[in-house]
Amino acid sequence: MVALKPLIRVQREDFDLKTEIATLTEGRQDIGAVVTFTGLCRDEGGSLNALELEHYPGMAEAEMARIAELAIARFSLLGLSAVHRYGKIAPGENIVLVIAAASHRQAAFDGANFVMDFLKTAAPFWKKEHLANGSTGNWVVAKDADDAARDKWLKP
């Protein structure tokens, strides 16, 4: 049996949730659960005008694929898509999408959760803030909580 290949994309343009789910499930009768996670840009209480997403072309796709393949093997997923946008993204717009398909719900929930936890800490993307007052803000600082979320998957 050929190992399942995840569908990975890094793109400027937005994605359509319905289309992405259909791509994963069309013609399939073995999938019993689909979990999707969408990450959006927040306005941080009105103080944020946009996030600018920078990425390492080539490595970003490769890392996302590596993480996705770990999830497919660990949770016996039947399908996995991950799409990450780059460039300037306004509050309310999509940033990232993960879709995990499995026979049963727990594997699909866990698969999507696992991919997001590793994607945040290992996929080479960086966010810069553009503030509502017109100034260019800071680079977003990596959170210890994100490392902790990843590390829970590494416990025996």
Binding site: Y56, V96, L119, K120, P124
Partner: peptide
């Protein structure tokens, strides 16, 4: 060789 700060995607 890539040189960069901790990642903040997702």
């Amino acid at each position: 060789i890539g040189i960069f700060p901790p990642m903040t995607g997702g």
